[in-house]
């Protein structure tokens, strides 16, 4: 009985931590990278995009590798030619300036560090874990199902110096 209660409590705790370890879907990645086109003064031409992950968390590593494979496979289509790079959070420093960062699953403990980096480097940070955006640590949160949602943290966007076109702002949720 106690064991069942403990397992149930653990499952409930995990359920109440949205996004923990939840793998990014292909649709969420596509939505995320298409957002780049709606920035004010978006980067043009070949632009590095950091796939930020934690090398010590398996779900994060797996998710980042999926993201890399998808980005290599899907056609560009957008106005920006994104060049993906895997970036381990433990090696994330200002030596390399990424204007776009897509955050892999399982990165919740590092959201504060990612925000600090984004603030210094004016990086558009995108996550499929909405808790990152809700906590004001990521600029954009995306969902792919049951319908596409794009949610912008005005606080994070302002801190990172990221602006979006007026038409785009009117079609997404801001908080």
């Amino acid at each position: 009985m106690l064991r069942a209660l403990a397992v149930g409590t653990l499952l409930l705790t995990l359920a109440l931590l949205p996004g923990t370890g939840k793998a990014t879907t292909l649709n969420e990645l596509k939505v995320g990278i298409r957002i780049v086109d709606f920035m004010v003064s978006p980067p043009r031409g070949p632009t590095p995009i950091a796939l930020i992950y934690d090398s010590q968390i398996k779900t994060s590593v797996d998710d980042a590798q999926s993201l890399l494979a998808w980005l290599d496979a899907i056609p560009g289509g957008g106005k920006t030619d994104l060049i993906p790079s895997l970036v381990d959070i433990h090696q994330l420093n200002d030596d390399t300036n990424f204007r776009i960062g897509f955050i892999a699953a399982g990165m919740e403990p590092h959201y504060g560090r990612i925000l600090d980096y984004a603030r210094r480097n004016h990086t558009l940070t995108i996550s499929a874990d909405l808790s990152c955006e809700r906590s004001g640590k990521c600029v954009v949160g995306v969902t792919g199902a049951p319908r596409v949602e794009v949610i912008i943290s005005q606080q994070a966007a302002s801190a990172c110096g990221t602006e979006f076109t007026e038409a785009f702002r009117m079609m997404v949720t801001e908080n």
Partner: peptide, 11 residues
Amino acid sequence: GAYERLFGEPV
């Protein structure tokens, strides 16, 4: 076109 691709529905 760009918005339709983003949201997966017409705008």
